[in-house]
């Protein structure tokens, strides 16, 4: 896929320890990685393996205990609010739980307006803003006119997550971190969400880091795969390498846990 591989985001010895002394949890334990521009990377691991913690470190939402993050080849510097804001123009996220991703006191337009403002569009005429929001909504097959003046709780989980994609559509970041975007919504809307996500990534070519516990899904969408077990990357490589020829017992177990939805793989041989 990425022939002329250009580094986008990488980490060296990245570690996160929660708590102090006897009660400390090593959530992420010295992980190294290189994510290349335009790639779709999957991070696969069980619940509690530290995927969300890693994502939050990458996003700069929590501090790192140890290790460095490099963005576009340079050491990431987000020590001031201004630098953070600049960084967040480049890296965005869709969170695991759409129901807790929204401020319940704000109308839905606020979320989209914030994106326009973040992209420097605060001074645009109101009509232009509405046009942009309408376009973003129709990208994920939502009707903006029906959403204005609504509050988040008036939407379904699927609609909320689609709106999150519309948000990314407006922000056009270089990197998108999608943290299990479909795990909290009903099975029937999952495929749609994934479709919109992939459509957006194909149109914008943004680097997409896809976090999931479903290794089948990872195989389906990604170029390279990182397998995470208790805070460590135990195996990584292209999707084919890792999933068709897994080396680690943990990876094999993850593969075996997946019901055989993808008939063409013959997993019984593994």
């Amino acid at each position: 896929m990425a022939n002329q591989k250009e580094l986008c985001l990488s980490g060296k010895g990245l570690t996160k320890i929660f708590g102090l002394g006897g009660r400390k949890t090593v959530a992420v334990d010295h992980v190294d990685f290189d994510f290349y521009k335009g790639e779709v990377v999957s991070i696969v691991g069980e619940s509690g393996s530290g995927k969300t913690t890693l994502a939050k470190m990458l996003l700069g939402l929590i501090s790192t205990t140890e290790g460095e993050i490099y963005f576009l080849g340079e050491k990431r510097d987000i020590r001031t609010h201004r630098k953070k804001k600049e960084y967040w123009k480049n890296i965005q996220a869709i969170f695991q739980d759409p129901f807790s991703s929204y401020n319940i006191f704000n109308k839905i337009d606020t979320v989209l307006l914030d994106c326009i403002h973040m992209r420097g569009g605060s001074r645009l005429p109101r009509a232009k803003k509405i046009e942009m929001m309408t376009e973003a909504c129709s990208f994920v097959n939502l009707k903006f006119e029906e959403l204005t003046n609504k509050y988040p709780f008036e939407l379904s989980g699927g609609q909320m997550q689609r709106l999150m994609i519309a948000r990314i559509f407006l922000l056009k970041p270089k990197i998108l971190l999608a943290d299990e975007p479909t795990s909290m919504i009903d099975a029937s809307s999952r495929a749609t969400i994934l479709d919109y996500l992939m459509k957006l990534r194909n149109e914008t070519g943004m680097t997409t880091i896809f976090i999931t516990h479903d290794i089948g899904l990872a195989y389906y969408v990604s170029d390279s795969v990182y397998i995470m077990e208790r805070g460590r990357f135990v195996e990584s490589g292209t999707a084919d390498e890792v999933i068709l020829y897994p080396r680690e017992a943990y990876t094999k177990r993850l593969i075996n846990d997946v019901p055989k939805i993808y008939e063409e793989w013959d997993l019984s041989t593994v």
Partner: peptide, 26 residues
């Protein structure tokens, strides 16, 4: 540490803005 606060940070809002709109109403 709630996601709506994280989202507000990702939208570039200042600490004061976050405290006033994402914490205080709750």
């Amino acid at each position: 540490n709630r996601d709506h606060v994280n989202l507000s940070k990702l939208s570039g809002h200042s600490v004061v803005h976050i405290i006033l709109t994402d914490i205080l109403p709750y």
